[in-house]
């Protein structure tokens, strides 16, 4: 059954299916038997992929799976196909500017209802002593400002939304 996976900017589609008494993974036609053992007392598990065995730590939280493998830590995001399609394309895909990194709002330059031109600064955010301007990605009207001056936010938090344009 298919899912879309994102790891550190790399996106891959894969399918999980039953195989013999366990499971197999198919990534782009490459199919391998896989298994994950139950956790030992320190939380570590053994992951088998084809012929290879790895000692891993795996924690799942919502759509994210945190994996420590071969000394490195990764975050794997799992997205269902219908969600991928819902987010893809369309004139109204980019309605909202989201925070590129965690930070705080330093200043807000606009109000709901304001007409803005492409490139105009909407809001200034600060993160790790670096200031970044959030600018309008197209001409439009501000629909909502989601954060107030002084508010702290995480990455991907919606900051400013523009009104959806009518589809031709």
């Amino acid at each position: 059954m298919r899912r879309h996976f994102e790891i550190d900017g790399t996106a891959l589609d894969a399918a999980l299916m039953r195989h013999a008494d366990g499971y197999a993974l198919d990534v782009g036609g490459e199919r391998q038997a896989i298994a994950l053992s139950p956790a030992t007392s320190d939380g570590a598990q053994t992951l088998r992929v084809g012929d290879r065995l790895y000692r891993v730590h795996v924690v799942r939280d919502g759509d994210e799976t945190f994996v420590q493998i071969a000394g490195r830590s990764f975050t794997v995001r799992t997205i269902e196909p219908l969600t991928v399609f819902a987010h893809a394309g369309g004139a109204n895909a980019d309605l909202t500017a989201r925070a590129p990194m965690p930070g705080t709002v330093v200043s807000v330059r606009i109000q709901p209802g304001a007409r803005v031109a492409k490139g105009e600064t909407l809001m200034v955010i600060e993160s790790m002593k670096l200031e970044t301007a959030i600018t309008a990605w197209r001409d439009g009207t501000v629909e909502a400002v989601h954060m107030a001056v002084g508010q702290t936010f995480d990455r991907d938090t919606p900051l400013v939304s523009l009104v959806a344009e009518a589809v031709e």
């Binding site: 899912r3 996976f5 990534v27 992951l47 994996v67 794997v76 799992t78």
Partner: peptide
């Protein structure tokens, strides 16, 4: 290979996805 392993770990710890396969 690491990417395959990561996806495998994510897939096997996804109870919804396992349920669909099951």
């Amino acid at each position: 290979e690491t990417l395959m392993a990561l996806i495998a770990a994510a897939a096997l710890s996804d109870t919804g996805l396992r349920g669909e396969a099951d």
